[in-house]
Amino acid sequence: MLIRRASDIVPSEVTPESLFRARRTWLGRAALLGVAAAAPALPLASVMAQGARLAGVKPNPHYALAGEKTNPVTEFRSYCNFYEFGSSKSDPAQYAGTLKLRPWTVAVEGAVLKPRTFDVDELMRLAALEERVYRLRCVEGWSMVIPWVGFPLSALIQQVQPTGQAKYVEFTTLADRAQMPGVRSGILDWPYTEGLRLDEAMHPLALLTFGAYGEMLAPQNGAPVRMVLPWKYGFKSAKSIVRIRFVEHEPRSAWMKANPTEYGFYANVNPNVDHPRWSQASERRLGEFGKRKTLLFNGYGEQVASLYAGMDLQKFY
């Protein structure tokens, strides 16, 4: 199957993936090491790593993101924040290739009537997979546009039936010292955890994600299953999830623990609330020279603003 993209994007605007692979990937990797001459000898497997094509996935026309250009898949796969594999943007592409993706289970537990441990292949079949083009805004001030493949997290939540005690959802990422060099370094308090309020988790935009660009997720992008929450900064979207737990009290996320003065629980994209050490008013869309104004809730205000009605967003950042 071809990479599906929204019909409003002129195909000629998008450089064919094969061309990018042939030219940019190896040149880019070479430049990172500063040895252009040695490029052909470099191990490219991790950047080139591609999961199987996801057959029969339809783009959801409601999330086509009219008028915004999808970033090339090479950017998506070579420029990642995934501290379990190292803190540099190029580390995940370099080191995540060895992540063992099968067998993989996701324990769904806590305040639910039907707790269950899913095999990831089983989880994938829980609802129809669809493609959604979302903006991704990183707290560091850059952004991309990515065609994800998944289904709304609400489909899973309805299956396990949260009890009245379930007010929040906590996501836990795999923390395997043997496979993840970053976990050995102790940059964060592993395992990586993230959380949402139950109504945020039930929101139709919250996507339980298995693929991108029409293929299964690459390990450096959070394979085999991750969250995508387009109205929040990227770090809220936990990667390589092994546990989803329903809890009564607001969970403390890994970044809240690491730096409580800089990271709050909500982490909604908000140009009016600065990160203490860098501005959030604007962002650089990868591939663009100029900067864009950052939009409140990353441009998803129409859909999500009601979740935060009456809340002081300066306080609950």
Binding site: R24, L27, G28, A31, G34, T74, Y79
Partner: peptide, 19 residues
């Protein structure tokens, strides 16, 4: 020289300005 060449050839990675 490496930076200028990289900028011209587009080999500075996904975020060349950051590089």
């Amino acid at each position: 020289g490496r930076l200028v060449a990289g900028a011209v050839l587009g080999t500075l990675g996904a975020n060349p300005i950051e590089a």
